[in-house]
Every structure is written in structure tokens, then in C-alpha cells.
């Protein structure tokens, strides 16, 4: 599609990678926005509304980079695709749940964003490298916030500990789905575009385990040959476009107005 695309880089793989990141941000942004007006305290209402707006803005950056590779505008990508064409991980599609669940999900996602964007800041694909470096600076605020909440709520009171532990039990196997392999990953690694999900997951686990343990929260994890290994079944499928009714409901909501007046100007 793009005429001046660097010939030594795998265009299909880059398209797949960008789409997975764009869909993750778009869907989580919408889930976070469901707290606007409903968060347990006003400060968190403001925080999650801001985070939602940031995430959706970041999806716009990835969709914009996709335009020359797909011929589709960001609006077409976000509003005209069926939910069965989304490649977000299932993790981000789950309903917002308890505030403890939202907090834990955001933290696990923000840690993954940090390792992924840090790695992509050294990508061999220029536009990806520059955008990743830019977004990484903004994401620092998200991680500071979600990590702070996990650290404080993990062992604050008996109730907060119980609810946070229940959230971790639910969210952790889902979160592993963020690192589900994508098509063309070997090519992306070989050409220095992306270090691969195995590497990122390993780095993410090290960070997550130390923060959660510090907050008295337990994870189903074992040390094997010096490496941390999850002892649970990851929730996969999202990257292969296998989704549940949760994503269908969200996409229906998000696209409702657009579908009523396709091409409408506001």
C-alpha cells in the first residue's frame, strides 16, 4: 500500500503489531471511561476519565500510523469494523467490574505498556520508534497512579486486601493474554522492529511480581531455573480475533452514533 515503505522491513507484521496496540488502547480507553461519573471518589473519577482520554488518544496515534498501510482512516478503523475484526487481547474487553478490578487491570496494563513502549523506542521502524517514545512520556503518569493505588490498597485494610486479592486472582490469567503471540512475530524480531512477546512478558513479570508482593498480594507463580513461570491458564484468543460478548457489547456502544449517521460531521 505505502510506496516509500522501507523494503527490508515486514509490512504485514508491522500492520499486525500496530493494530493489536491500537485496539488494546481503544478498548481499554472505553472501559476506563465507564467510570466517568461513577468512580468511588471524585479524584478517581477525574483520574480515570483522564486516563481514558489518553488511551483513546494513543489509539489514534497507532491508527494514524496504520493509514498508509491499510488505506483506512482512523475513524473507519474505530467505527466501521465489526468486533470480529478487532485484535485486542481479551483482557481489555472485560467489563469494568469492581473498582479494585479496574485498578489492578490498569496497573497490569500500564506495566506492560512501559516495557513494550520502552522496547519500541529502539525499533528499527522509524515512525513506530518516534511515536513510542512520545507516548511513553505520557504513560508515566498512568503507571505512577495505578501502581500507587495497588501499593496502598493491597494491604490497607482487611476489606481492601480481600477485594484487591480477588481482583488479582481474576485479572492475572487474563493479563497474560496481552503477550499472546501475533502473526509475523519472528520476522519482526529478526528485523529489529519488535523484541517479541516472550521477552516482554518476562520483563513484565519481574516488575509485576515485585510490586504485588510488596503490596501483600499473591500471584500464581513459581520460580523455575531462575525464571518466573505463571501457574495458571492464560486467557488467549483476542489476537486471533476470537472474542466474547463483552467486546461485542462495547463495540456496539462505541459505534452506535457513528452508525446512525455514517460520515456525519459534528
Amino acid at each position: 500500500m505505502q510506496t516509500n515503505f522501507p523494503s527490508q522491513l515486514p509490512q504485514d507484521g508491522i500492520r499486525t503489531l500496530l493494530l493489536a496496540m491500537a485496539d488494546d488502547e481503544l478498548v481499554l480507553g472505553h472501559r476506563d471511561s465507564e467510570w466517568t461519573g461513577y468512580a468511588p471518589i471524585l479524584e478517581e473519577d477525574i483520574a480515570f476519565s483522564n486516563i481514558a482520554q489518553d488511551e483513546i488518544g494513543h489509539s489514534l496515534v497507532w491508527f494514524t500510523l496504520l493509514t498508509p498501510l491499510t488505506g483506512l482512516t482512523p475513524d473507519q478503523m474505530a467505527f466501521e469494523r465489526s468486533y470480529e475484526e478487532f485484535t485486542c487481547c481479551r483482557f481489555v474487553t472485560h467489563p469494568k467490574g469492581d473498582f479494585a478490578y479496574t485498578t489492578v487491570r490498569q496497573y497490569l496494563f500500564d506495566e506492560a505498556e512501559r516495557v513494550r513502549l520502552t522496547a519500541l523506542s529502539g525499533s528499527s521502524y522509524g515512525p513506530l520508534k518516534e511515536a513510542a517514545a512520545k507516548i511513553l512520556r505520557e504513560e508515566a503518569y498512568h503507571l505512577m497512579h495505578s501502581k500507587g493505588l495497588v501499593e496502598r490498597l493491597g494491604d490497607a485494610t482487611e476489606e481492601s486486601h480481600r477485594r484487591m486479592q480477588a481482583a488479582v486472582d481474576l485479572a492475572f490469567p487474563q493479563a497474560l493474554g496481552m503477550f499472546e503471540p501475533i502473526d509475523g512475530e519472528a520476522e519482526l524480531q529478526k528485523t529489529g522492529v519488535f523484541p517479541g512477546n516472550v521477552t516482554l512478558e518476562h520483563e513484565w513479570l519481574n516488575n509485576v511480581v515485585s510490586v504485588l508482593r510488596g503490596a501483600s498480594l499473591k500471584l500464581p507463580i513459581q520460580q523455575m531455573n531462575g525464571k518466573l513461570k505463571p501457574q495458571c491458564k492464560p486467557e488467549l484468543g483476542g489476537r486471533k480475533k476470537s472474542h466474547t460478548a463483552h467486546l461485542q457489547q462495547l463495540v456496539d456502544d462505541v459505534q452506535l452514533v457513528y452508525r446512525m449517521a455514517p460520515g456525519g460531521k459534528w
Partner: peptide, 13 residues
């Protein structure tokens, strides 16, 4: 600092 976030993306309270 009351909030790391604020009324717009570029501000905190």
C-alpha cells in the same frame, strides 16, 4: 498535590 490528573490532560490539581 490533590490529584495527579485534572480538568484537562495537561493539568493536575
Amino acid at each position: 498535590r490533590e490529584n495527579s490528573f485534572g480538568p484537562t490532560l495537561c493539568r493536575q490539581i
